[in-house]
């Protein structure tokens, strides 16, 4: 179980992004995190995966615990090897100038065992589109194929917890649907999934539980069903809600609820 306790993160010593966020990821679940741009979703994943230091951010308060032991401040490689937390960055983090097979090989670098070939076959099993083009450079693959490859690469690291940062970014709705069905398939094989999404409707469709993040804080949590039915979530993230049409002028943030609870 991954638990984040009162986390505060500051970039370049001045830009405060996470202002005391706390959440819990239970083993084997699909957790959805939704929020507007700049809410701190990506920063949250970077902090958990240990990448925050690379982006010149600092965890100034709070703790990240994996089954009770703190993983705060560990190196990204250590967190991956010891605790099996793999972070799939946003915008299709594949190596453009390597072939698809090499991409999968590079992702298995942190392991030393001989089962890499078999795991590669497993990934091709999940994503059959990738098999015929495995000798092709990843940069020439389409957006959907690249995102599938990115998730395949994450699988090569044998994750226990998979942190997915907006996998549906820039993908057609049909591809998104396919991707999400594969993600819920992965969840069946005992991989815990944390899914950060803008596409709230699709994401809440496969998740059991969700959090809403705003201004670096959790403002709402509940089961997926509760969130889908929540008036504010419907208005801000699903684009429905109140019946009458609203002008964009009124959708400004300061017009929103000041207090959520």
């Amino acid at each position: 179980m991954l638990s984040i306790e009162n986390l505060r993160v500051v970039y370049h010593d001045v830009i405060s992004v996470l202002n005391g966020i706390s959440l819990e990821v239970k083993d084997g679940e699909v957790l959805i995190i939704i929020g507007a741009n700049g809410a701190g979703k990506t920063t949250l994943l970077r902090s958990v995966s240990g990448m925050i230091e690379f982006y010149d951010g600092d965890i100034i308060e709070g703790d990240i615990k994996m089954d009770g032991t703190s993983i705060k401040g560990l190196d990204a490689t250590d967190i991956m090897k010891r605790y099996g937390v793999t972070y799939v960055m946003e915008d299709r983090p594949v190596f453009w100038y390597l072939t698809i097979e090499e991409n999968l090989g590079a992702a298995s670098f942190s392991r030393w065992d001989k089962r890499v070939k078999a795991d590669m076959e497993e990934v091709f099993g999940y994503f059959p589109v990738l098999r015929p083009m495995k000798g092709k450079r990843a940069g020439y693959a389409s957006g959907g194929e690249q995102q599938m490859l990115a998730i395949g690469m994450a699988l090569m690291t044998k994750p226990k917890i998979l942190l997915l940062d907006e996998p549906s970014l820039g993908l057609a709705p049909l591809i998104t649907e396919e991707l999400f069905s594969i993600i819920s398939q992965l969840n069946q094989t005992d991989i815990t999934i944390v899914l950060v999404e803008q596409n709230a409707h699709a994401a809440l469709g496969i998740g059991k539980r969700g959090y809403v993040v705003e201004m670096g804080r959790i403002v709402l949590d509940g089961t997926a069903q509760e969130l889908l039915e929540n008036e504010d979530v419907r208005e801000f993230y699903l684009g429905s809600g109140k019946k009458e049409r609203k002008s964009y002028k009124d959708a400004k943030r300061y017009k929103r609820r000041k207090r959520w609870l």
Binding site: M51, T77, M80, T86, Y87, W96
Partner: peptide, 23 residues
């Protein structure tokens, strides 16, 4: 070699490489 592969991956993008467990 696999080390060479890791070097080529890192040379493309350090952040991506770190995210996939390459030190």
């Amino acid at each position: 070699t696999r080390w060479g592969l890791a070097i080529r991956a890192t040379s493309e993008d350090q952040a991506k490489a770190m995210a996939f467990g390459i030190n």
